[in-house]
Design a protein around this nucleic acid. Structure first.
Lengths: 239, 239
DNA sequence: CTCCTAAACTTGTATATACATCTTAGTATT
DNA sequence: AATACTAAGATGTATATACAAGTTTAGGAG
């Protein structure tokens, strides 16, 4: 099989950093030694190490080796493109999702612009509220093009839309552009959320694309400010 | 010279997307053709295209080619690790920096924790205010370890600390971990900023590292909410 | 003992080859 | 005319080699 050897090695090494087999500050084995240990070529090891470096697991030091970085503070996931369900599964605590609205609509001009579609394109409108420890703190407004997602049910929205798209429909969610701003509370925010006297919400606008580069989803995720936290890892120069 | 051929090609192709030589939706030449055109190997071209893909310039379609994505909406820089001076240079408008405080201190327990240093390590404390169109909207509190940055002047802080570190000191700023939250205004915020009645500020905490993986800077960037905007590009699966 | 140098080992870049997998267009068959 | 197959061309993965450049260590010269 000619598939994903480097990705498997990446996963295995990343696991060893997460579970503490490799400690922060330590040097991992050299590329030659890893190549021998995994019975593969140095180039394949280098692809795995490049991924680790890009995701903040290691720092490569020329002439010395690769040192393990401290990822404990980061509280994963580090930004990335992760669905709420996947995020919730990684956390421990009382987290609930309730579907407040679910229907097929024709887009208004604002949505036409966000989804770059015509007024005739049918769109799934899904409104969900995320509850943490009994407090309604996130309002998710999803809009999905029926052209790409022909069938959808309220039941699926209560679980995970992404799992349905990837596992049932066999589509591949590829990338997203996101924008974070702070905006005044709307009436809708106050209806659905426990705003606790906050006059503003943090708005995360997500434009999500499939692997053929077609835009299929626009999501507006509205967070109560005191419960919002975004963590990112960024490299200055690319390698 | 055995250096950075792939990075040069990346820069050249990225430039063609920015200036419109390559239009969104278009297919760029195939890897074979680019290899011939640049008189290099396919692997070198692939490294350049991988960078373009990671930074949201193109989407690679197996069996078809690489399609140019629309980066016009993104309004660069897309997250990344960019100094304020570099960001300001790309924008047009009346932007000013004023240094409000500049001195050498010994860290209190909070700073010791943020910078992971002892109470004896001297730290440069720099407080700067960023003014847009006459409004004081960002308060930057920088703390730099003297161990790594032995000399610093108020004049440098008024221009660009990063330019000084990289060009004068010859150090390489490598990566940063950042965290975005929303927090109540402090007295300091109200003293230095035109808070315009806002009760909260957006706080961006930056932990910045050199290329030997040593932490040298902790920055707290406090933004007036209505002027804050963060744009990110994220891929779901890594390649 | 100190200093310098050379060797060994590390990661970085460039090139080449082979084959897998996917898309598309063209051809042949039914 | 519709379908099925084939070939060409595209990207994806794996391997191999050579050399460049930075770091560390060991050993030799003084």
């Amino acid at each position: 099989m000619k598939k994903n050897k480097y990705k498997n090695i990446y996963e295995e090494l990343a696991g060893k950093m997460k579970d503490g087999t490799f400690q922060p500050g330590e040097l991992i084995p050299s590329e030659h030694e890893l190549a021998a240990r995994y019975e593969t070529s140095r180039e394949t090891i280098r692809k795995a190490l490049t991924l680790l470096s890009q995701n903040g697991y290691i720092q490569k030091l020329r002439g010395k080796g690769s040192v393990v970085l401290d990822t404990s503070r980061a509280s994963f996931p580090i930004s990335g493109l992760v669905s709420f369900k996947e995020l919730a599964d990684q956390m421990n605590g009382a987290i609930q999702t309730s579907v407040e609205e679910f229907r097929l609509i024709l887009p208004d001009p604002y949505l036409q612009h966000q989804l770059q579609c015509s007024v005739k394109e049918e769109v799934w409108k899904v409104i969900r509220v995320r509850t943490f420890d009994g407090e309604r703190v996130i309002l998710d407004k999803d809009f999905l093009l029926k052209k790409h997602i022909p069938a959808l049910t309220e039941d699926i929205c209560g679980k995970s839309i992404y799992a349905y798209i990837e596992q049932e429909l066999g589509l591949t969610i590829s990338f997203a552009k996101k924008e974070i701003t702070v905006e005044p509370c709307t009436n809708e925010d106050m209806d659905f959320l426990h705003t606790n006297g906050f006059a503003h919400v943090v708005v995360v606008r997500n434009y999500v694309y499939l692997d053929d580069a077609s835009l299929f989803q626009y999501t507006e995720s509205r967070h109560r400010p005191d419960k919002f936290r975004f963590v990112d890892f960024a490299r200055r120069h690319m390698k």
